[in-house]
Measured scan of single mutants.
Amino acid sequence: GKKITDLRVIDLKSELKRRNLDITGVKTVLISRLKQAIEEEGGDPDNIEL
């Protein structure tokens, strides 16, 4: 897996889109939004599978 902070903006957006989440904002905003979603799913933001 990869750390969420290692993802490119395009990867962050595709992961957010897959979860029907907002894809607007700067990279730090996208990271925190995706991180929260992954944690709510019970996942580990430091080890995500794309």
Rank of each mutant, 00 (worst) to 15 (best):
I23K: 07
L16T: 01
K13H: 12
R33V: 01
V29E: 14
I31G: 05
L34H: 03
L16K: 00
I31S: 10
V29A: 13
D44H: 08
L30S: 03
K27V: 05
K35P: 01
L21C: 05
N20L: 08
T5L: 09
E41R: 03
P45F: 08
G43D: 08
K2L: 09
L16S: 01
E40S: 14
T24Q: 15
Q36S: 04
E41D: 09
G43S: 08
T5V: 13
L50P: 14
D46H: 11
G1R: 01
E40A: 13
N47F: 12
L12F: 02
K35L: 11
G43W: 03
G1Y: 15
D6T: 10
E15Y: 02
E49K: 09
K13F: 07
K13V: 13
N20V: 02
T5M: 13
R8S: 14
R33M: 04
T5H: 07
L16M: 02
I23F: 15
K2I: 15
I48K: 02
V29I: 15
R19G: 00
N20K: 12
V29L: 11
G42I: 01
L50H: 15
D6S: 11
N47L: 09
S32F: 08
I10E: 12
I23D: 05
N20I: 00
L50W: 10
E40K: 11
K3E: 09
L16F: 00
K27W: 07
L7Y: 02
K17S: 13
I23E: 11
E15C: 02
D44I: 06
K27T: 12
L21T: 02
T28C: 15
D11P: 02
E49N: 14
R8Y: 03
D11H: 10
S32R: 13
L16D: 05
D11F: 15
K3F: 06
L12V: 07
T24W: 07
T5Q: 13
E40C: 11
E39C: 09
R19Y: 01
L21Y: 07
S14C: 07
K35Q: 10
G43L: 12
I48P: 08
I48N: 05
V26F: 14
E49M: 07
R8A: 11
K2M: 13
D6V: 03
S14P: 01
I10F: 05
V26I: 13
E41H: 03
E15M: 14
V26G: 14
I4W: 00
L21S: 06
E40W: 04
I23N: 02
N20G: 14
I48E: 08
I4F: 06
L16G: 01
L7S: 01
S14A: 11
D6K: 10
S14V: 14
I31M: 15
L7M: 01
L7C: 11
Q36L: 14
L30W: 03
G42F: 03
E41L: 01
G1F: 15
D46R: 08
P45I: 10
K35E: 06
D44P: 04
K2R: 05
L30C: 04
L34K: 03
R33T: 03
K35H: 13
V9D: 11
L50Q: 11
I4C: 06
Q36C: 09
E39Q: 02
N47C: 11
R8V: 06
D11G: 01
T28L: 12
R8H: 07
E15A: 05
L12R: 00
V29W: 01
E39S: 13
T24R: 15
I48Q: 14
E39P: 00
G42W: 02
Q36R: 12
S14G: 12
D46C: 10
L50A: 15
N20P: 00
K17F: 08
D46G: 12
G43A: 10
D6C: 09
T24C: 15
E49P: 10
N47H: 10
K3D: 10
D44Q: 07
D46V: 07
G1D: 13
E49S: 12
V29M: 14
I4A: 02
R19C: 00
R19K: 07
D6Y: 05
I4T: 03
I31K: 05
E15K: 00
P45Q: 04
D6Q: 12
S32D: 11
L21G: 04
D6M: 08
R19M: 03
G1L: 03
V26Y: 08
S14M: 13
V29C: 13
G1A: 12
K3P: 07
S14Y: 10
R8L: 11
D46T: 12
I38L: 14
K13W: 08
L12M: 05
L16N: 00
L12C: 04
T24V: 04
D22M: 06
T28A: 13
I31A: 14
E41G: 09
K2C: 11
K13I: 15
L16I: 00
I4H: 04
K27L: 01
T5R: 10
D6A: 09
V26Q: 11
P45Y: 09
K2Y: 05
R8E: 09
G43K: 10
L34D: 04
E49W: 08
K17W: 10
N47S: 10
K17Y: 12
S14I: 10
L30Q: 05
K35I: 06
I4M: 11
D22L: 06
G42C: 08
I4Q: 03
I10K: 09
I23R: 09
I4V: 11
Q36P: 02
V29R: 09
D44V: 05
T5A: 13
L16P: 01
L16R: 00
P45L: 09
K3Q: 07
D44M: 02
L21N: 03
Q36V: 09
K2T: 09
L7D: 02
L12G: 01
L34V: 05
I38S: 02
D46Y: 12
D44Y: 05
I4N: 02
D46L: 11
P45E: 07
L30E: 04
L7R: 02
V26A: 15
E39R: 15
L16H: 04
E15H: 04
E40M: 14
V9L: 09
D22F: 00
V26M: 12
E49G: 09
D6H: 11
E39V: 13
I31Y: 12
E49C: 08
P45K: 06
K3Y: 02
E39F: 06
L50C: 12
L12Q: 00
L12Y: 00
I23A: 15
L30A: 05
V29N: 12
T24G: 08
V9W: 05
I10N: 03
D11L: 02
L7A: 06
I23G: 10
K27C: 02
N47A: 08
N20R: 11
L34T: 02
T24H: 02
K3I: 02
R19I: 00
G42D: 10
K17L: 05
D11V: 01
D22G: 08
I23P: 13
D11Y: 02
E40I: 06
